[in-house]
Write a protein that binds this DNA or RNA. Structure first.
Length: 155
DNA sequence: GCCAACGTTGGC
DNA sequence: GCCAACGTTGGC
């Protein structure tokens, strides 16, 4: 099992939005970055665990846990010419972009803010700290445990 | 709203 | 294949 951090702007899609889904699952579509795409297509597996991160807000933070319920498959939003994620280079034969499905887990008892993450030297290697633009990031098991402890929950 | 970081595009 | 220009992300 692998661990990940998924970023989202809560004004676009939030952890509470995921909870409100009728089946608490969501297609994680619209990712248009090759490195993140490779993780979605090649590495992320069913039951992998996710730190759910809210970006582009006054207090960016990890707010909850989620998990993967379907591994990578073609992101068909790239094929819709009327959609905002349309990519003319994608086709049914060569999908180019991929998505996974995720399921709501549970909120952290105390959110783990970016500020707290930056203060912890054990988390200094997280891409969030120095490569914050990557929207899907691998998380080590050590980082996972530290963040859950900081968040006041157990796995 | 600013701007640094960084990814993508396109001319050559 | 290089690299300048440009666009986007996201913290502040």
């Amino acid at each position: 099992m692998n661990y990940w951090l998924f970023k989202t702007e809560p004004g676009c899609f939030s952890f509470d939005d995921l909870k409100k889904r009728p089946d608490m699952t969501e297609h994680w579509d619209g990712v248009r970055n090759y490195q993140a795409r490779n993780f979605l297509r090649d590495t992320i597996q069913v039951d992998d665990r996710i730190l759910f991160y809210h970006s582009n807000i006054p207090e960016p933070a990890i707010v909850g846990l989620a998990s993967v319920v379907r591994a990578g498959y073609p992101d068909t939003t790239a094929l819709d010419p009327n959609g905002e994620h349309f990519d003319p280079k994608a086709s049914v034969e060569k999908p180019l972009w991929y998505m996974v499905d995720v399921r709501y887990g549970k909120p952290l008892n105390k959110i783990v803010t970016l500020e707290r993450i930056k203060q912890n030297p054990l988390l200094a290697d997280m891409p969030l700290v120095n490569r914050s633009r990557l929207s899907i990031q691998p998380v080590t098991v050590q980082e996972w445990q530290i963040i859950l402890t900081m968040g006041g929950v157990t796995g």
